[in-house]
Design a protein around this nucleic acid. Structure first.
Lengths: 140, 140
DNA sequence: TTCGCCAAAGATAATAATTCTCATTTAGAA
DNA sequence: TTCTAAATGAGAATTATTATCTTTGGCGAA
């Protein structure tokens, strides 16, 4: 887990002012697994910042996304979710429950990178690829 | 392009009543390329059905999605978009402009299918995979 | 072909997520 | 420490979508 110091450093490098709200929100997204919604984040933050404004949370999330410290994750059904950018990974979507889990697979990444190195898409420059693996979590 | 007759047949097979609104909406999504938003669809429909209710459009889109005649696609930024289901395909997302284009690549599909036939994800049953290929459309 | 039922459409209110506005505060450079 | 642009807070506004309720009409059965 990232220390507070590292986290502040990240903000600083992007030229963002280090405010307690930003630190708290950034930290919250890192801490809250499973791709929190803005609502999840607000709820969590409110424990320590009962007076934080919802607008602020949205603004901070936006600025973190703009500065590539967070990613927005789309969900076919409903609300936008956020995801700390730590490393390249894919998503398992449960069609039934809408649960999202991260899925790491360096072999797969290698395979796909190799594929697109050889096969160009004309008129389009590929930056990165995320797989949306749809299916169902098996009952345990 | 699908004829009106084929299109009605599709609705019928799903046990949906064939109403002029449904036909028009289904047709509109097929016609409007590039993953129209509900708004795009409404705008288009209004030309022939100036009095159609927005709620109806949403309801029809929902029922078409439920019956797997359409798919919902959500872009990274905000709004829901709709996509006629014709066959398996992926999406090219332009990071700059949010433009979405379809991308077909049977070779790629084969490669990935083969990969996941051999490599199982424990606790998860894969149904289908969509690639989100992020990048930029080159200027022409 | 007509009848009658129930799904579907229309109108509009309600809700939910997100954005905007603007007054106030504050981080951090000078 | 001071100053200023940037950030925050509060709450109104906007936008997309859903819900409710009444009316209409598709279509199976008589």
């Amino acid at each position: 887990m990232m220390t507070d110091e590292q986290l502040r450093e990240q903000l600083k490098q992007k030229g963002l002012k280090i405010t307690p709200q930003r630190v708290a929100i950034y930290r919250a997204v890192m801490k809250l697994k499973n791709h929190p919604t803005a609502e999840n984040i607000i709820e969590h933050i409110k424990l320590n910042y009962p007076n934080i404004s919802i607008g602020t949370v949205y603004k901070v999330l936006d600025s973190l996304v703009e500065n590539q410290l967070l990613k927005k994750v789309k969900n076919e059904k409903d609300v936008m979710r956020y995801d700390a950018i730590i490393h390249q990974h894919h998503h398992l979507y449960c069609i039934e429950t809408e649960r999202i889990e991260d899925y790491d697979d360096p072999d797969l990444d290698k395979l796909i990178t190799k594929y697109f190195k050889q096969k160009k898409i004309k008129g389009f420059k590929v930056k990165d690829i995320t797989l949306q693996i749809n299916g169902e979590f098996k009952i345990k």
